[in-house]
């Protein structure tokens, strides 16, 4: 008798993709608005996870200040809408651009740092952004209360009102992100990232422009986090410095690591564990920090490569043992 596993393997990749997409489209229909909101949040964090995965997973660089770029994207969108009456939809590209430019500016001087040092600088940067927002920098960020009163999102004359609308908006960008990161993974740049991650010096000796590769990882990852921030504002007309809290960066980092660094399905597993489950089961939310810590410790002991690792990174990690 053919096992279920073997049967599942016979489904062609396109079949999987179409099936999962259909599931993602149909899933919220029987649910109430609360669960639709949970799915929306899941989508936002999956996009954040996939963007951070470019930096942490592909290029192998530590980034523990990712939430700062999320906040930068959100504030950019909010400010443009509040002060210049730019329709929210048109602020999205600017949010991406602003976050990407900051990604460039912060990473350029610190790229030569390795591992833990890089990690410390990114934490510091995240805090600088948060504190700047709290202190009402340039008198425009509204201090600790943040900003509120942004317009509703209108796309092609359609005003997005319900959680369902916003879920589909995020789903659209999630699918776009997935297509993009898949293509990146298999591109020349994706190969350069893999070489840099595995042996930077050998990569350099073979003609890989390692500085450019690392810089691009930061710029692309940061810019895409900015988009996630803008999508947040599209639904929630309130932004506050809390978006850039250190714990937010930690959650994003855990999403990438828990599922399996460098693995696209891993990001979804991580989002499920770090965002979706705590939303559905309140006790996990109350005990969120303990749950996160416990899950990470358990994983590091039992499955250091993550719950759904990429084939390559599993080999890298298992080999070091």
């Amino acid at each position: 008798m053919v096992s279920l596993r073997a049967r599942l393997r016979q489904v062609p990749p396109l079949g999987w993709q179409v099936g999962l997409l259909a599931l993602a489209i149909l899933l919220p229909l029987p649910l109430n608005d609360y669960y639709r909101s949970v799915l929306w949040r899941t989508g936002i964090y999956a996009i954040l996870g996939l963007s951070l995965n470019i930096i942490v997973g592909y290029a192998g660089l530590f980034q523990l200040g990712h939430a700062a770029f999320y906040a930068l994207g959100a504030y950019t969108s909010a400010l443009l809408n509040l002060h210049f009456d730019v329709p929210l939809v048109l602020t999205w590209p600017v949010s991406i651009l602003v976050a990407a430019v900051f990604g460039y500016l912060i990473s350029r001087p610190i790229l030569h740092l390795r591992g833990d040092y890089l990690c410390i600088v990114t934490i510091a940067f995240g805090e600088v952004v948060r504190l700047a927002l709290v202190n009402n920098i340039f008198g425009i960020t509204g201090g600790a209360n943040g900003l509120s009163g942004m317009d509703q999102t209108v796309i092609f004359g359609l005003t997005l009102r319900s959680p369902l609308h916003h879920y589909y908006l995020v789903l659209f960008f999630l699918v776009l992100t997935l297509v993009a990161v898949r293509r990146l993974e298999n591109s020349r740049l994706g190969r350069a990232w893999m070489y840099v991650r595995e042996d930077e010096m050998a990569a350099e000796a073979m003609g890989v422009d390692t500085t450019r590769a690392k810089l691009l990882a930061f710029v692309l990852g940061s810019g895409w986090a900015g988009l996630a921030g803008a999508l947040y504002v599209a639904r929630i007309p309130v932004v506050s410095p809390d978006l850039a809290r250190f714990i937010e960066s930690v959650v994003m980092f855990c999403i990438v690591v828990l599922g399996g660094t460098g693995s696209i399905p891993g990001v979804f597993v991580g989002t499920l564990g770090m965002i979706t489950l705590p939303e559905i089961f309140r006790f996990l939310k109350t005990w969120r920090d303990a749950w996160m810590g416990g899950a990470m410790v358990a994983m590091m002991i039992a499955r250091p490569e993550g719950l759904w690792p990429s084939r390559r990174i599993r080999m890298e990690i298992r080999e070091e043992e």
Binding site: Y195, E198, D199, M201, A202, A205, M206, G207, R312, M315, E316, E319
Partner: peptide
């Protein structure tokens, strides 16, 4: 110019 650095730096997982 191609440099072969000391100590076989091949990618063992490739």
């Amino acid at each position: 110019i191609c440099h072969v650095p000391e100590g076989r730096r091949i990618f063992t997982t490739l």
